[in-house]
């Protein structure tokens, strides 16, 4: 038997470890588990980035036909991740700040940080600058559902808020109350601040 990388129908290249049967079992040896956790974290984040996925739920390990099927199960070797192992991996990823449970105070549903909030803040400011929307007031809705698809399309509200808060701290954005909720105005600040 040979373990080789595999390209999924969605065009994602699975690493060869994904074809190893024990990769789908939680390891009792802490050192081995640390390796497995790291591999799973990287796999989940890179897949999320590939598919532009922002959320993962513990129950994704159970359901079939969901967004996460291609990595949470491997039908070629008849293995799948069970929910308790996925829950463990998500907890570990939360500890290393690679995701945040959303809503907070539970641990079954999470928002993935395949970009950190700091990186999202830069992406957001960059987008506002390059589309000439500095100094205009934008609603949150206009940012995450822009008429022209942008890198921000579909970004969860929790990530958007954190990114905007970071920009406010560096004086590159202001929160403005608008009629139907909240809006934001991006300001021209040097990115080095």
């Amino acid at each position: 038997m040979s373990l080789s990388p595999h390209t999924t129908p969605s065009g994602f290249r699975l690493p060869s470890i994904h074809a190893a049967p024990p990769f789908f079992t939680q390891q009792p040896n802490p050192a081995t588990q640390a390796v497995a956790t790291e591999q799973w974290s990287r796999l989940i984040l890179s897949y999320a980035k590939h598919r532009n996925l922002f959320t993962i739920k513990v129950e994704d390990a159970q359901t079939t036909g969901g967004d996460w099927d291609e990595i949470l199960r491997n039908d070629r070797i008849n293995r799948k991740l069970n929910t308790s192992y996925l829950a463990y991996i998500l907890e570990q990823m939360e500890r290393s700040c690679r995701l945040a449970f959303d809503p907070p105070k539970q641990s079954i549903s999470a928002v993935l940080y395949w970009r950190t909030p700091e990186e999202w803040a830069e992406v957001l400011h960059e987008w506002a600058t390059s589309t000439g929307q500095l100094n205009t007031i934008l609603t949150f809705y206009e940012i995450i559902e822009p008429p022209v698809p942008s890198p921000l399309s579909g970004v969860p509200m929790s990530i958007l808020r954190r990114a905007i808060n970071l920009l406010i701290k560096s004086n590159r954005a202001q929160l403005i109350a608008v009629a139907d909720g909240e809006g934001v105005r991006f300001l021209n600040g040097s990115t080095s601040k």
Binding site: A20, P21, P22, F23, F24, T25, Q27, P28, N29, A31, T32, A36, N78, R79, K80
Partner: peptide, 15 residues
């Protein structure tokens, strides 16, 4: 080999 030495991995879904 599994617990002390870490040279093998466990698989609990073996057919």
């Amino acid at each position: 080999m599994l617990l002390r030495d870490g040279i093998c991995w466990l698989d609990d879904q073996d057919e």
